[in-house]
Design a protein around this nucleic acid. Structure first.
Lengths: 379, 379
DNA sequence: TTGTAAGCGTTATCAA
DNA sequence: TTGATAACGCTTACAA
């Protein structure tokens, strides 16, 4: 007698195993394993037969068994260390994740995703994932100039790709002889300094320097000479790159630090608005502000509106990263548009390469382009 | 001779196993297993000793081995079926996920997260995860009125919690005798119809009916008699609940369908703006619009601004779901504020309960409150 | 209270 | 080209 109807759902159709396939196809288990993994040692004919039986039974490898027998877990990890408070409006991550998964899911790789409060929790999580054999590798986002993660991951031997820039280790001690940095042939050679030589770590980055140069070309071309950059979190690699680049570009044009400068924030609308107020209160306020994300740009535009400052009449606004947000405000915001999902795809591909034993290299993402809208004009 | 220094990173510190612990503590492997899993069969003393050795070695159970030996995978799944196009600005999901993980990570449960294009891919993914033994259970989001997922999950025997409402099966055929719906004692009894009787499925939901009633109280109280609801995607359970509720509330006040009605969209800023234009073009335009998310509300406000329609002077706007967005526009938008992270926590707890064998029940989330800001006033 | 041994579903190593 | 068989690390009867 089986379980009563009501409880029948508890034990549904048993998952087929290679044993079932072997029995059904009249071969050994190892033959099945070979056939299903494209390994030699089985004839074309039996391979085909085994395949069709597997198909018929709807077999899928049990990931636990596969992971246990030394193969890959078929899983990558992504940790987002953000205080809950700053998890506000953020199109960037979902886009990135969706790009990543486009590549991963084609390779049957799952993504373990976790939001944690801070960097320490993130490191602890890497240790745990490693100890639990949960992931084959991880994608490290929000790299920092002083970043403990690459070193930790290297010491664990957990394959990783740094997404979004170059992360420096906490110590400057090299972990091993650095292999040559490979710029892919499709990438334009950067005029800016390439990523600083670092322990060998696969990296996918965007050339923020060039992007910042484009923004400055645009604003300078319109006649702006006093420009403030409302940057994101200090310590993040790309924040620092943008700040450095702004300085370089300003120097090239003979604009000193009183007229062209950066201030840092936590990316939130609150700090974006607050920074804007302080900036506009200055004796000689700027004629243009560059915001490091869309939310702050909108918040900034809102502060201008609140004070009756016409945009772009007396203040031009540029948002770094486009989103629906920039298109629903009035005026619509000029924005640096980048293909975030594409960036995610690139990162995922790079992790696959690392897992395949390709030596760590640095790959450059597509350069963002400036979409000039109504929020920028002559001062 | 070991590997040369340069390659030493490849094989880092081997993961400790219970065998290592057993050897070191001078006990058997099973004793270790018992001790570490709080199972009886080992003395307090040895348990403590084993624990300290495990701690010392930094041992963590290999999740693959644990999953393979019939235990839980220690992993839950969450699939987001959204066309990439609509992945725009969406604070809701990251908040929800962060709440979910707050509970899961305390229980050492990882979250497998995947974005797919449509419902079919979502179903395929459930099948695969089930076949691969990847997850112990899943959280089903964006439930629909006609939803194939509960039935699929039931047939697979994959434990699940429906997050955000009641999902109906594709067919009306009951899967089993429905157990009583349990409303938790903390929840206010709903005046609206409770979730329709369905196959026994754990559900976490928010009372959109009551929330809609609150919005209508607010608007009606201000004197609004012509109100349009710019809803989200048709077919989503909560969209339909809100539409139904609007009608009920309007009927109660004797407002007919010419004056109070809903239109559906895909949640995007584009459709939100487009719907707003059509609505304002009507012969007798409404004096208030309720938007089903923050992005559309901002887009709508933007359309009003573009046409020189004063808000709230000639048009009041309410956003369902608050976000920084609603606070950076001018005027700031009146919004229905809900604790999304809290909702995520509730959902996670419910899945844990289901995994622990608690029979499926319906749990109600906190009722959202209306945060009246500057975008609503007397018509 | 302890230790032994079988089993989970793969992959990998050998003989046949 | 095949088919046994031993890992992998853990849980869990069952025996001592």
């Amino acid at each position: 007698m089986t379980a009563p109807g009501g409880a029948a759902r508890r034990k549904p159709a048993r998952r087929p195993t290679i044993k079932d396939i072997a029995r059904r196809a009249g071969v050994s288990e190892s033959a099945v394993s070979f056939a299903l993994n494209d390994r030699p040692g089985v004839s074309q004919e039996t391979r085909a037969r085994i395949r069709s039986v597997a198909q018929e039974l709807g077999w899928q490898a049990n990931s636990a068994a596969r992971a246990l027998s030394g193969e890959r877990a078929g899983c990558a990890g992504l940790v987002l260390a953000r205080p809950a408070r700053t998890l506000g409006v953020e199109s960037f991550f979902l886009q990135l994740v969706s790009g990543i998964q486009e590549v991963f899911s084609a390779h049957k790789i799952a993504l373990l995703f976790q939001v944690v409060e801070d960097l320490d929790s993130e490191c602890a999580l890497y240790r745990r994932w490693w100890a639990e054999c949960r992931v084959d590798g991880v994608l490290v986002v929000d790299p920092r100039t002083q970043d403990p993660r690459p070193q930790l991951l290297a010491s664990l031997g957990l394959p990783a790709v740094v997404v979004g820039g170059v992360a420096g280790p906490e110590t400057t001690e090299p972990l091993a002889a650095a292999p040559p940095v490979v710029e892919p042939s499709t990438a334009q050679p950067s005029t800016a300094q390439p990523p600083i030589a670092q322990p060998p770590f696969a990296t996918v980055w965007a050339d923020d320097s060039k992007a910042m140069a484009r923004v400055l070309d645009h604003l300078y071309g319109l006649g702006h000479r006093r420009i403030v950059h409302v940057a994101g979190m200090p310590g993040l690699a790309h924040t620092e790159r943008r700040i450095d680049s702004l300085r370089t570009e300003a120097d090239r044009r003979g604009l000193d630090e009183r007229h062209v400068r950066s201030v840092t924030t936590d990316y939130s609308d609150a700090e974006g608005a607050e920074a804007t107020r302080r900036i506009l209160d200055a004796a000689e306020p700027p004629t243009a502000i560059i915001y490091d994300n869309d939310v702050m740009a909108v918040a900034g535009a809102s502060v201008a509106a609140e004070r009756g400052i016409p945009v772009p009449g007396r203040l031009s606004i540029v948002a770094w990263d486009d989103s629906p947000l920039c298109r629903v405000t009035h005026p619509r915001l000029t924005a640096l548009v980048r293909d975030t999902a594409g960036f995610g795809r690139l990162a995922a591909q790079e992790l696959l390469a690392v897992l395949d034993g390709v030596p760590p290299r640095t790959v450059q993402g597509e350069l963002p382009h400036l979409e000039a809208r109504e929020s920028t004009g002559a001062p």
